[in-house]
């Protein structure tokens, strides 16, 4: 295995005083693509939020180590600057901030440097083309009135612009039509062009994975990892469902 980028050790997470994750272990190496599957309500999104540092998700035990550094107690902005990105299952609408200004502010805060407008707009335009997004969306308020598909594309657009070392994609493909899934998948491939780009893809379907190289697959149920394997596990789950693991 390549250098470890993300290490989750015995993670227990509470939401609203209820334990959701009961001790989860997971390791993602630099440049690897992992897939996380599991039934609805298993705690997949919870894991994503906890790694990103959502204060509503309390870590009661265990650690999150990123790039060799224990970040369990860090705020989300610090984790983001360290290189973690979360594509939200339900992206939030923020009125009064345009998509473009938002990405530019985020870039400036991450680098501490001013981002030149002209070069930024050029790069943004190129990324939007890859994602087949109408350029007018750059100046629309962040996610406000975007369709489900447009919201997900806007998430991948942020991924391409912010260039994190680890991207957690939480059901980015859910609710999208075939064409949109293909486009999003092209965006993910674009991100993977950087050989250090690492991915944890939470999904129910194989479609988004078709064109991607997958290094490992994990199955989460009831807040616990119940199976891990290579890319073939995706296929197996696709054909037979989760029952075989749950029965064990």
């Amino acid at each position: 295995m390549s250098r470890k980028l993300l290490e989750i050790n015995g993670l227990k997470v509470n939401v609203a005083d209820k334990q959701i994750l009961h001790g989860v272990d997971l390791a993602v190496g630099s440049g690897e693509t992992h897939v996380l599957m599991g039934p609805n309500g298993a705690g997949k999104s919870t894991l994503g939020y906890a790694v990103m540092g959502d204060p509503r998700y309390t870590v009661t035990e265990g650690t999150v180590v990123f790039d060799g550094r224990d970040i369990t107690a860090e705020n989300a902005d610090v984790r983001a600057k360290a290189g973690i990105f979360l594509s939200f299952q339900n992206p939030i609408e923020v009125p009064g901030i345009s998509l473009s200004n938002f990405i530019r502010s985020a870039l400036e805060q991450r680098t501490g440097k001013r981002v030149k407008l002209w070069e930024f707009r050029k790069e943004l335009k190129a990324a939007m083309e890859i994602l087949e997004m109408d350029p007018a969306y750059a100046d629309r308020d962040l996610n406000v009135g975007f369709s489900g598909g447009e919201k997900k594309k806007a998430e991948i657009l942020q991924l391409l612009m912010l260039k994190p070392s680890l991207a957690i994609l939480d059901e980015t493909d859910s609710g999208l039509d075939v064409d949109a899934v293909r486009t999003v998948s092209v965006g993910i491939k674009e991100y993977q062009k950087n050989k250090n780009a690492s991915l944890l893809i939470i999904t129910h379907s194989t479609r988004i994975l078709e064109a991607l190289h997958v290094d490992a697959t994990h199955v989460l149920a009831d807040g616990q990892m119940i199976a891990s394997g290579d890319a073939s596990l995706v296929e197996e789950i696709n054909n037979h469902g989760f029952e075989q693991f749950l029965a064990r």
């Binding site: 990103m52 540092g53 959502d54 204060p55 509503r56 705020n75 989300a76 902005d77 984790r79 983001a80 600057k81 990105f85 979360l86 939200f88 992206p91 939030i92 923020v94 009064g96 901030i97 938002f102 990405i103 502010s105 985020a106 805060q109 991450r110 942020q158 912010l162």
Partner: peptide
């Protein structure tokens, strides 16, 4: 949290909103 997850500090996230 959404804004912070992109690297924006809490203070700036609130000011932006």
């Amino acid at each position: 949290f959404y804004l912070m997850s992109r690297g924006i500090s809490e203070e700036d996230a609130r000011a932006m909103i």
